[in-house]
Simulated scan of single mutants.
Amino acid sequence: MSITVTTWHLEQTSPGDLRPATPARARAAAPDGEGPLIMRAETPSPEFSRFLYASVGQDIRWTDRLALSWAEWERAVCRPEVETWVAYDRGTPAGYAELEAGPDGSVEIVYFGLIPAFRGRGIGGPLLSEAVARAWDLGERREGFPPTKRVWLHTCSKDGPHAMDNYLRRGFRLYRTETAEEDEVATPGPWPGAGPLPYVIEEPGRPAAGS
């Protein structure tokens, strides 16, 4: 069976295009306890990257990297032009953004998303804001890379329902739309043989689900 998939390509062409959700929190700690902690994974790890990819994409049909070997994952994420930025909620990875710098001064946000249990908790806006800000200053931070001239990404109708709104709120502009027929694939789940987990996170002072 095939499905119709719409893909939207979005871009920013100036650092001034970014409309941040909240002040960035790419620090070693968040002393006030508010908002997600967002840090770069400075030691590339195929294992950690696969965990993030499989966990974020478990219910939105991210499958293109699931069959990669460890060596292929290493080649994908351990290159100098790739950065992984991770959002943590009280010490637990909640989502991530993978950036890839091109030789022409463009930086692509290759992957972006939140683990299902952390969606709707005010993390996506700050994470995207930080990822875009770090894409714009990548050439300043990293020796051997040109100044960033453009930040771009694509999303599609298989992604979460709030993805496009988040991108537009952060200042991205639509520049191309494509529609194609694709083979329908099963929702992969967080690991082989498992389906998406209907778990919830209990907040301090809030009754657990079902209580």
Score class of each variant (00 low, 15 high):
91 G>E: 15
94 A>Q: 11
94 A>T: 09
94 A>D: 04
95 G>V: 10
97 A>Y: 00
97 A>S: 13
98 E>H: 11
99 L>Y: 04
100 E>Y: 09
100 E>S: 14
101 A>D: 10
101 A>Q: 13
103 P>G: 08
103 P>N: 08
104 D>H: 12
105 G>T: 08
106 S>C: 13
106 S>F: 02
107 V>A: 08
108 E>V: 14
108 E>K: 15
109 I>A: 11
110 V>T: 15
111 Y>E: 12
112 F>P: 08
112 F>E: 09
112 F>C: 12
112 F>G: 06
113 G>F: 09
113 G>E: 14
113 G>M: 10
114 L>N: 06
114 L>I: 07
115 I>Y: 03
115 I>N: 10
116 P>F: 06
116 P>I: 02
117 A>G: 12
117 A>E: 15
117 A>L: 07
117 A>D: 15
117 A>R: 10
118 F>H: 14
118 F>N: 04
119 R>D: 09
119 R>Q: 15
119 R>A: 11
121 R>K: 14
122 G>V: 00
123 I>P: 00
123 I>Q: 03
123 I>T: 03
123 I>D: 03
124 G>T: 02
125 G>L: 02
125 G>H: 02
126 P>I: 05
128 L>E: 05
128 L>V: 03
128 L>S: 05
128 L>R: 01
128 L>G: 06
128 L>P: 06
130 E>D: 13
130 E>R: 01
131 A>R: 00
131 A>S: 12
131 A>V: 04
132 V>L: 04
132 V>P: 02
132 V>A: 13
133 A>C: 03
133 A>I: 02
133 A>K: 04
133 A>D: 09
135 A>E: 00
135 A>M: 07
135 A>Q: 05
136 W>Q: 08
136 W>C: 05
137 D>E: 02
137 D>Y: 00
137 D>K: 02
138 L>C: 05
138 L>A: 12
139 G>Q: 02
139 G>N: 02
139 G>S: 03
139 G>Y: 04
140 E>C: 00
140 E>F: 00
141 R>Y: 01
142 R>D: 05
142 R>M: 11
143 E>I: 00
144 G>F: 01
145 F>Y: 07
146 P>C: 06
147 P>R: 07
147 P>L: 07
148 T>P: 04
148 T>D: 04
149 K>E: 13
149 K>P: 03
149 K>C: 12
150 R>S: 07
151 V>N: 08
151 V>Y: 07
152 W>I: 08
152 W>N: 09
153 L>E: 14
153 L>K: 08
154 H>R: 12
154 H>C: 15
155 T>W: 06
157 S>H: 07
157 S>P: 14
157 S>W: 06
158 K>A: 14
158 K>I: 12
159 D>E: 11
159 D>M: 07
159 D>S: 11
161 P>I: 07
162 H>V: 10
163 A>H: 08
164 M>Q: 13
164 M>T: 09
164 M>R: 13
164 M>L: 15
165 D>T: 12
165 D>M: 05
165 D>E: 09
166 N>H: 09
166 N>P: 05
166 N>W: 00
167 Y>D: 04
167 Y>V: 05
168 L>S: 02
168 L>I: 06
169 R>W: 00
170 R>C: 13
172 F>Y: 10
173 R>N: 13
174 L>E: 00
174 L>P: 03
174 L>R: 15
174 L>A: 09
177 T>K: 08
177 T>H: 05
